[in-house]
Design a protein around this nucleic acid. Sequence first.
DNA 1: ATAGGGTTAG
Length: 658
Amino acid sequence: MHVITRPKPKDFKVLITQLQQLRSCLSVSSSSSTTFPAKTDPFVHPDPETLSQLLNHRPGVSQLKQIHTQIITRACSSSPSLTHSLIHCYLYAKDLTTARTLFNSYPLPSPPTLLWNIMIRAYSKLYNCQDPIKLFVQMLALDRTLVIFPDEYTFTFVITSCSHQGSLVYGEIVRGMVVKSGFESNLYVGNAVINLYSVFVKMEDAHKVFDEMSDRDVFSWTSLLRGYAKHGEMRRACEIFYQMPVHNEVSWTVVISGFVGAGRYVEALGYFREMLCDGKVKANEAILVCVLSACAHLGALDQGNWIHSYMGKNRISESSNIFTALIDMYAKCGRIDCATRVFNGISRRDVHNFTSMISGLSIHGLGNDALSVFYQMLAANVKPNAVTILGVLNGCSHSGLVEEGSSIFYNMESMWGVVPEIEHYGCYINLLGRAGHLERAFEIVKRMPMNSDIVIWRSLLNGCRIHRDANLAEYIINHIGQLNLHGCNGGEVLLSNLYASLGSWQGVVEVRKLMGERRIDSDPGCSWIEVDGVVHEFRVADRLHPQIVEIRDKLKEILKKASVGGYVANATQVSFDLNDEEKEQAVAWHSEKLAVAFALMITPTGTLIRIVKNLRTCEDCHSALKVISKVFGREIIVRDRSRFHTFKEGGCSCNDYW
DNA sequence: ATAGGGTTAG
């Protein structure tokens, strides 16, 4: 039994006085002033009717407990209507435990359907919780003579709960009952079913239910839309989006986040702009978080800045999510100073805020700062999560902080309860490999509790490449061969790059042949550059950009000047998705070089150039950009897949360690 | 009553 603290009589007096005032205002009962000073002192012993009315005013937790105490001491806790109100109030106050206790002690024979429904709904909001289904099963097991049956509300909540907790099996069982009982024609129930199928990407089923519905609303459309968007089927998603009769904040969010999830950031921003032009829907927090994420991925600083000021003007509340997204955006757009300013302005920082800041410092190669924010976080009693640890380890890795990284890696489970996943191993192995502790790294790979994946091998081989350890590299390649890892995409690219950097052209040719047979493509390289608020996208050997001919000519000219400045083309990391004639040009047409040529072509002399790229910068581009920064007197900031490189006067901020 | 959002190693 739960313990209820006795109320302080004084608090209670205030409450009852308030109620009396309220009654007289509403003139609910003109006689109330005469009934109160009756036989017993109402300040100590309010009657059940007063208690019931007090409950109707949605009291806060402490008042609620006082009323509850009174109900118990006045011996009216067996009153169904008072229990009913109490349960409502405890759920409103988010105290599910007490609500459940009351529910369990509900006077026999059974709580009415309404109470079952609100209990199930309350649990379904907890997401990862089996209780809605357990309750539903209990409800079904009731003696049928009680005439307590699930209704359309029950089904809506139970199915929603199945979607939340990822239980398609239960969902389909419940759906069967829905169909039999005829409740599927109810709009809310039907929508819940569509959503269920969409969450599990069973789009044929979702569509079927949708098509057979007699009436649909924006929820039906949005649930269907979300199914396609989450699955990355953006063509279908857009079709549905344009068929919808109305668009609201949620439908726009689903489309924009769908493009972000599919890595199509330019389109995500395009839809955001369309939403603003459309003018019917104002951006809210959810949409801005998505859009900031798109800006972060693209390095679209101008648009990110615009959104930051838009939030100020439109008084969008600065929630934790927004702070996290802003820090991430500024950090990934190269403005670690702005990210820090946002971070410093947060009064109560949560895990996500800290994590975003730490990861941001790490990609800027500021390992020591990342570590100090991490320690600051621990001092503030904020518990790091799996992502936080990845961020710090990554920071250590970029700055060669082997001892600090090791200490965090070996203590993460005991100190913060974060079990090392393969990502953490990958990060740690990367740290050791880069720092030249190749044997130690390899030992860990062999002792890991899980199978190593291609990322792990790539980290190790990258270490071999940096420290020119051909023996270990060969050994690892043989090892990978035995593990038959060739089947997974990325393995082939890795192998061919490695053979190439070891100078084994025989190996390169073999792998390339294999890739051709299996029709394996490497991820196409892609760079973005924002000029005057417009993001330009360049792909390897791009032919799509409207000014591509000019850009190519400009690039030839640039490389000619660069070679005078000491640049020598280096094709050891050529990707092999090109044919022989294109091969010699392959390095020359890497997307970041095209982007730089474009920037040199259209931006004023001396302007800073900022480029974002989806893959790692190859050695050739890295050395070319160093020379270009000197020859053309430009600072060039490139964010590649793993970190920032600031090219200035012939050098790079990463000190060639990446 | 039912639909939407952030950080994530290389």
